[in-house]
Design a protein around this nucleic acid. Structure first.
Lengths: 114, 114
DNA sequence: TTAGTATATAATGATATGCTTATATATACA
DNA sequence: TGTATATATAAGCATATCATTATATACTAA
């Protein structure tokens, strides 16, 4: 168990952000693998702008980082964020979302860009 | 670390519920002490209906239980809820809210009903 | 029974959220 | 340069959320 505590209001802000199934699944996936936007678009049944908007919210709080690699923009968990330990403890309790990525690989979608 | 995992959609629902500073503080307080509604009304700067509505949401998901004691209705954490371990790990990382209760005692407000 | 206290619920309104469509920007490549 | 691809942003809309005020219900005690 972690000893550190986190200010309650800040915790509420983070939990609210994680309290959306798309963002929560994104964070769970990102905790293990970097991903580009097109992968998320393929994984979740929603539009590209919707994915971008979710990522922006996560980025605005510093929970994820973005990095351009050529044509693509890869997102990764920001492990140096001061709230990462708090978030990680939550993510650890969630089932792996690797099956979602695996489905993409089988479809060949993941290989197309990443 | 807990071994159990929790369905992702259910986790998102719970996190969304906890993603409100009033409800999150309530849960943190309830994790240590039972409380009646009038205490919460005194602690938080909001109306009694607002408090009741927050408690209803927590109750609807089975996160808290209510118990009438005469004129008052006491709320307590529902430790037998299947998601309690998940919630507890989150609450553990938050700072104690005992100061809020202490303030009430000093004002004499807590003693009035509880 | 009546008055007072504690709590819940209903109705309403302001603001937030999350999606969609349309468009802008940046890169890759022929 | 022109076209295609990847991503971000803007605008608009439907729905959700959270507070407030008003009212209903339940219990207590005179």
């Amino acid at each position: 168990m972690l000893k550190t505590t986190i200010e309650l209001e800040k915790a509420a802000t983070i939990l609210k952000l994680l309290g959306d199934k798309t963002r929560l699944a994104m964070m769970k996936i990102l905790d293990k693998h970097d991903c580009c936007v097109c992968e998320f678009v393929a994984i979740f049944k929603t539009s590209q702008p919707s994915i971008s908007q979710h990522l922006r919210k996560l980025r605005d709080l510093g929970l994820v980082k973005e990095e351009r690699r050529g044509q693509w923009i890869f997102y990764s968990i920001n492990k140096s964020n001061e709230y990462y330990p708090f978030i990680q403890q939550i993510l650890e309790q969630l089932p792996s979302q690797d099956d979602k990525l695996k489905d993409l690989e089988e479809q060949g979608t993941r290989i197309s860009c990443c």
